[in-house]
Design a protein around this nucleic acid. Structure first.
Length: 591
RNA sequence: CGGGGCGUAGCGUAGUCCGGCUAGCGCGCUUGCUUGGGGUGCAAGAGGUCGGGAGUUCAAAUCUCCCCGCCCCGACCA
């Protein structure tokens, strides 16, 4: 490709709406342009890099035994109703109407479509296992698009769906995808690593995310350098000890705490009750019903764990009014004792109880974090503004519905596997593999007949890679002050030939054309910078775009019978003209 | 949706508080000369509904109201 033939609109300065380095470079290097928030055009160079990522994905998916299909982006709501996700995924679904008024969903993912296909086309264990994948445009009604391609309303995703006859088979399919993902990201030059993950509204019970470490990532990962344990913070657990009992049996005692509404205030003079002897009582609305959550005063609730453990779909913190309606006190004085407003009497109390009943808030579950198991000598709110209770023994005094791990781990806590201190870092999620089980196959009737003639639902898995996000992650990980530093495998062009004179009869240009032809013949992707620009401009642009290898042809070195070869992230080397192509080919293998 | 910020030429911006503009600057673009190994230098040019609408005023980029778009934090995140 000749530079003047394509479009590479490099920018000296990044548009003001780009915040992170990869987003700025995508724009500055002329790879993408924004049409609207979260909606981008891929320019020639950006598309080339994208296609290379896709090619790697195709090769590895094919190698892992998956077969490519292409499913519609426009999907009828009925199948989403059938799976139940019309509701659970409602907030990310793009909904459109055709001119007849019929509703359609724009696909954010395709479990329903592929399962419908399997229901129709797969009838026998003889046809299994199967793994179907596609690479296609996906839509997501992001409430806040962010960081260029990282979080867009429209993006390219590879999604794959496996169907097996047994759980063991599904596990094997999962493992194949897990390994394929490891290969894919490695070939993309990415340092990605798998972490245990929550399954969210996709469902299923076993899942890993592939993460690229980056300060700008939107995820936090807890990991152990000693044993390799790694998990999304939404899922991570630690070996931190339980609170334990301190002394036995003093009776609950109410005491006045005027104006005290925070854990911290109660830990200070004159109360001096350390946060780790306090029970934090949170009211949440889970699927429209209030729920009490108890965690230790120095811990933070992990909402993802809460939703996952309780099976709740829509989870949010209750408003102060909802707290009052449920417990009779404002946040800061809440507790899981005195749930019938015992401190009140007569008519007032009856009214409170009546209001609560009327709202349907009179029965609620109490979930407590496991770290509180067995704890006594604890302090908690009295459900009466301005009062707290001490000497609380959680198992004696509180009727806990269920104990779960509900807290968020912090850096330094002992690894759940080996006890060494955990670290936490931010990361970009580029891939996600799920073991789905039979959730979709049961709902959408994707069944088969086994050897004995019994009808069974297929055991499914699903596997996603955010392709456009992966592209940006590659740039986020590969850049320096001068621009992008592409891995050879995904660079828009592997080699940039830069003749410093471009007149057709000039020695530099003739030689450039010759190298271009010879390298192209060896299946190297080459771009020839035939612009009549000053050397500085060409070098700066080549660095900004980030071609892995640059060949400069200028008078000075040509006079010595040499050309200059420079890897984007390495030192210049001068080589004789007649061995230049070989030298580049050697580099193209090594880089 | 809540909080904060922004919108002036392709990009980056000054001017906005305190109304007085023929709207300025850098980069880029066009033309000529110059230069020719890291964004050359000089000169001449083109390019603006100051996000849109309504209002106040002798006068609005500047003040008021409404709307739109964009960015950041949060909520959300198959």
């Amino acid at each position: 490709m000749k530079w003047t033939q394509t479009l590479i609109p490099t920018l000296r300065e990044a548009p003001a709406d780009a915040e992170i380095v990869s987003h700025k470079l995508l724009l500055r290097a002329g790879l993408i342009r924004k049409l609207a928030g979260g909606v981008y055009t891929f320019l020639p160079l950006g598309l080339r890099a994208l296609r290379k990522v896709e090619k790697i994905i195709r090769e590895e998916m094919d190698r892992a035994g998956a077969v490519e299909v292409l499913m519609p982006a426009l999907q009828p709501p009925e199948i989403w109703e059938a799976s139940g996700r019309a509701e659970t995924a409602s907030n990310v679904l793009f909904k459109v109407k055709d001119s007849a008024g019929r509703q359609w969903f724009l696909s954010p993912t395709a479990e329903e479509v592929i399962t419908t296909l399997a229901a129709n086309e797969i009838n026998s264990y003889r046809q299994l296992p199967k793994n179907f994948y596609q690479i296609s445009l996906k839509f997501r009604d992001e409430i806040r698009p962010r960081f260029g391609l990282m979080r867009a309303k429209e993006f390219i995703m590879k999604d794959a769906y496996s169907f097996d006859t047994t759980d063991e088979g599904a596990m094997a399919s999962y493992k194949k995808m897990y390994d394929a993902y490891t290969n894919i990201f490695a070939r993309c030059g990415l340092k990605a690593f798998p972490v245990e993950a929550d399954t969210g509204v996709i469902g299923g019970n076993y899942s890993h995310e592939f993460m690229v470490p980056a300060e700008t990532g939107e995820n936090e990962v807890a990991f152990c350098e000693a044993c390799g344990y790694a998990a999304n913070i939404e899922k991570a657990t630690s070996g931190i000890p339980k609170t334990g009992a301190r002394e036995i049996g003093a009776a609950i005692e109410k005491f006045a705490t005027p104006g005290v509404v925070t854990i911290e205030a109660l830990s200070k003079e004159p109360y001096k009750i350390p946060a780790n002897r306090q029970i934090k009582t949170l009211v949440y609305i889970a699927d429209s019903k209030p729920v009490l959550i108890l965690i230790r005063g120095d811990d933070q609730l992990n909402e993802t764990k809460f939703a996952a453990k309780t099976g709740a779909v829509a989870v949010r913190a209750a408003t102060p009014q909802e707290c009052s309606d449920t417990l009779g006190a404002k946040p800061g004085s809440l507790g899981a004792i005195n749930l019938q407003f015992e401190h009140l009497t007569g008519k007032v109390r009856d009214e409170m109880l009546e209001i609560r009943k009327h709202l349907g808030f009179d029965s609620f579950k109490i979930y407590a974090d496991e770290r509180l198991q067995g704890a006594n000598d604890m302090t908690t709110g009295a459900n009466e503004d301005g009062f707290h209770l001490k000497n609380v023994s959680i198992e004696r005094d509180i009727k806990v519905t269920a104990w779960f791990d509900l807290r968020t781990v912090s850096a330094g806590e002992p690894c759940v596997k080996c006890g060494k201190p955990l670290k936490i870092r931010r990361a970009i999620e580029v891939g996600h593999v799920f073991k789905l089980g039979t959730k979709y196959s049961e709902k959408l009737n994707a069944t088969f007949l086994d050897e004995a003639g019994a009808r069974k639902p297929s055991v499914m898995g699903c596997y996603g890679i955010g392709v456009t996000r992966t592209l940006q992650a590659i740039i986020e990980q590969g850049n320096d002050k001068d621009g992008v530093v592409w891995p050879l495998s995904v660079a828009p062009y592997q080699v940039c030939i830069t003749p410093l004179a471009v007149a057709p009869e000039s020695e530099a240009m003739k030689l450039a054309e010759k190298f271009y032809a010879e390298l192209s013949a060896k299946s190297i992707d080459v771009i020839l910078d035939d612009r009549d620009e000053r050397p500085g401009v060409k070098f700066k642009d080549a660095d900004l775009v980030g071609f892995p290898i640059r060949i400069a042809l200028g008078e000075k070195s040509l006079a010595k019978g040499e050309v200059e070869i420079k890897p984007r992230n390495g030192a210049v080397q001068f080589v004789k003209i007649d061995v230049a192509v070989e030298a580049v080919l050697a580099l193209a293998k090594a880089v």
